[in-house]
Design a protein around this nucleic acid. Sequence first.
DNA 1: CGACAAGTTGATGTTACTCAAAAGTGGTGG
DNA 2: CCACCACTTTTGAGTAACATCAACTTGTCG
Lengths: 241, 241
Amino acid sequence: MATEALRVSALSGHAIIARLSRLATLGAMETQVLQAAAESGIRLPAHSEILREDEPIPSAMIFLSGWACRLRHLADGRRQILSFLLPGDLIGVCRQRRAIATTTVATLTDAVVCNAPSPPQGGGGLAEAFAVSGALEEVYLFRQITRLGRLSAEERIVDFLFEIHERLSAVDLVTGNSFPLPITQEQLADTLGLTSVHVNRTLQVLRREGLIELRGGRATLLDRAQLKLMIDHRPGRVSHA
Amino acid sequence: MATEALRVSALSGHAIIARLSRLATLGAMETQVLQAAAESGIRLPAHSEILREDEPIPSAMIFLSGWACRLRHLADGRRQILSFLLPGDLIGVCRQRRAIATTTVATLTDAVVCNAPSPPQGGGGLAEAFAVSGALEEVYLFRQITRLGRLSAEERIVDFLFEIHERLSAVDLVTGNSFPLPITQEQLADTLGLTSVHVNRTLQVLRREGLIELRGGRATLLDRAQLKLMIDHRPGRVSHA
DNA sequence: CGACAAGTTGATGTTACTCAAAAGTGGTGG
DNA sequence: CCACCACTTTTGAGTAACATCAACTTGTCG
């Protein structure tokens, strides 16, 4: 965890506040606590490990900017990316004592993280927001399982793009139908259980059909209606009105 | 949730106590609370839904006996089984208010469930055990993702059998290398992202090689050493010391 | 310009899927 | 006890999706 402490502009704090305040009602105090935490962010270069499998989790953290992933290595070198961490996500929130990380978490881009305030025991908006965030994380794991188990390569890619679109929307990082996607085709392959060659060919099909655009670390959904017909997209919901 | 209330013998309570008391240190009081809960179990026939996607979660429950699964249906009829519920597992434990189920949960066999005692806020062994249980559940989701994304059909089956073996061990349901596996090959296929035809053929290979036995709802690992060479088995650990 | 990572292409191989049907299993009622 | 039914397992033949291997191209950055 190579680090360089620094003041991060107030802007970097926005993602977590934008996200959590949509997941639960935060008091002014709670927003301030988050704001303060976000201002003591730590910059991490790309490819640094935030957590390492089987090692203690030092403290709960907030992912303020950049991209990271949870991943698992197999003995023979195969890798599986389990999920992505996007701005506004929580890392290492766990309720048991002496917790150890069950997966490695590594940045994919330069990133900024900060320690998460410990949510007060008695409930309250922040505790609620943390709980909802955890439940959403589980929903995305379920979707990932379904993608890998039952969707074709083309469907996996489209479904994945919709999921990232949805998550980045929650932190105001989507511009129209376009959003950052700073990952390589090989990383996409390790996420979707494919080879990078096959990802490449499948992307070409989607591009030729005018459905998506993918260049320079950004993705654009050119024909949302058509793309939605290819998959069974249900936005993540974990509680009702 | 077709139901028939009845007293369930004390024996049915054992799974949950066996499991949770290994996950954290329970006080005598806590054990008694669990015992009491387990004695008011409700019998469910096979193929009943415990939770339905998008509907409110009535209360946290304990799965006392039988098998159930979390699953997701796609619009075109494809199904993905996400995970299994085994005796001693918790269902529907969530910390946010007005929670709705994000997946369907359905019994695969006749089963017995009871309401879970709400763990006291202030911590304590039971709260700790619930937390560890939740963390383990997440570990098994990670493993499921890795299985589907990066393992061959043969590896998926072997890895899955080890996982079930490990989980049933925790509730004393393994006899030697043999344990109950009351699911059809089609359900196994829906779990492992394969077709039932391919599961069948792969099982035959494993049988012919004398590695496993699968009959009458029971599985036996005939050659653990050899099987372990085929996969990268790491038992689920979520805390240290 | 050179070096290195990422993306692209082609040829070929393999795993797993599809479709269809037969054989086995267990439970039910006559 | 047998006949029947539904479900599960098994088998075969043909096919589609995705992997592998190896090269070549493009882009990026110092």
